[in-house]
Design a binder for these strands. Structure first.
Lengths: 213, 213
DNA sequence: TAGATTGTTAATCGATTAACAATC
DNA sequence: TAGATTGTTAATCGATTAACAATC
């Protein structure tokens, strides 16, 4: 299957919206309704669906329950995905505390850190010594990891993860990680994202000023 | 100026790398060195530079100090950008505590929340009542805001921000916000990012299984 | 000079958007 | 049926990559 990363991301968002729509009693909708809610176009919606074989009815649009069932199937809601987080700093702990994961099939099973002061083996999820990372991941066959450590530690953590069997990583460290091609890496750089907002605000302001003159 | 969003993002990353390189005494480098460090190609690096008029020397590559100075100029390091965060939950507080912002020109000047239990007017930055958002932003001419509230409150918060004069927003709420075109919005959906990692891990596994058969 | 590197133009790739036939 | 909506094919757009001339 082709990756079509951006389409997949939107499928997750359609799903999110459909769950909300269902909760307020909606039973059927058109691609236009979805587009409107998502801030995209109905063409985009139908294109995404077409890519993944999701189909509706040429007269009555989409049946919400059917669509949702198909999306759940496609996106693998049914398989729980267990996740470890390395780094119990600000970001690691924020993710740990986020309650929204569980109902969508994501389970944070443990955090790891190198600082003994934050160990907490009896918490849920437990915060464990970094040295246990390999063994924990390997024994529990964990496939998804989050790297939320300072940049100078990130590559080292990733190397352990790979050895232990991790197949996909969400990386918050602001560094280009080296990894084999079959590892899926998703870099998220929050400082960069915020910096870019500031940049574009300034850039647009300059533009406006220029055009005013 | 064209937006070239992805190029701008990379410029910030080049800058980050140059600062580290400088700290270990490097004085000159080639596009190839930058590419290697960033996990991209030298063509990409030179293309990015070319887009923004950054030039090197056809024989000796780039002088680190010059390049850094030009990048700082371009990316506006010199203007401090003040930022408000709305929502003092997990994400809002994690961002607040992040120390890396200040040295790159970003200053979190206040958080806002609707829960009186988290108010703290004397902290740095202070956590203030949401009702003060409009007045604070307006009076201090803040232009950048972060939305880190639950999705059902996000649009409301954005509307206040816009009225108060905010021009760019980093939005963590998983919802498509409605806003005039001249507002710059950067959506960051952490759950979605993690879900997609899990998805691609499964998808690639399926692929591999299929090919093995 | 010969070799290495930059900077730019052209080609390719992937994703979005437009157009429109099929059909309920 | 006529009108509305889907699903797909073609066109466009933006970003990346390849090719290569310029030149230090």
């Amino acid at each position: 299957m082709k990756l079509a990363k951006l389409s997949v991301m939107r499928l997750f968002q359609y799903k999110e919206f459909l769950i909300r729509a269902k909760s307020i009693g909606i039973k059927n909708l058109f691609s236009d309704d979805l587009a409107e809610a998502m801030g995209t176009t109905s063409t985009q919606v139908r294109k995404d669906f077409s890519l993944f074989g999701l189909s509706g009815n040429k007269r009555a649009g989409y049946k919400l329950d059917d669509l949702l069932a198909q999306l759940n199937e496609l996106l693998g809601k049914n398989e729980k995905q267990r996740v470890v987080i390395v780094g119990a700093g600000n970001i690691g702990r924020a993710l740990m505390k986020y309650e929204g994961f569980y109902k969508d099939g994501l389970e944070i099973v443990a955090l790891f850190d190198s600082d003994p002061n934050v160990y907490n083996e009896t918490a849920t999820p437990p915060v464990l010594p970094l040295e246990h990372l390999y063994e924990f991941v390997n024994r529990n066959k964990i496939e998804v990891g989050v790297i939320a450590v300072p940049y100078h530690a990130a590559q080292q953590v990733l190397d352990i993860m790979i050895l232990a069997g991790i197949k996909g990583v969400m990386n918050f460290a602001p560094i280009a990680l080296r990894a084999p091609k079959d590892l899926y890496i998703n870099d998220v750089n929050l400082k960069l994202e915020l910096e870019s907002v500031a940049y574009f605000v300034n850039a647009l302001k300059r533009d406006r000023t220029k055009n005013d003159v």
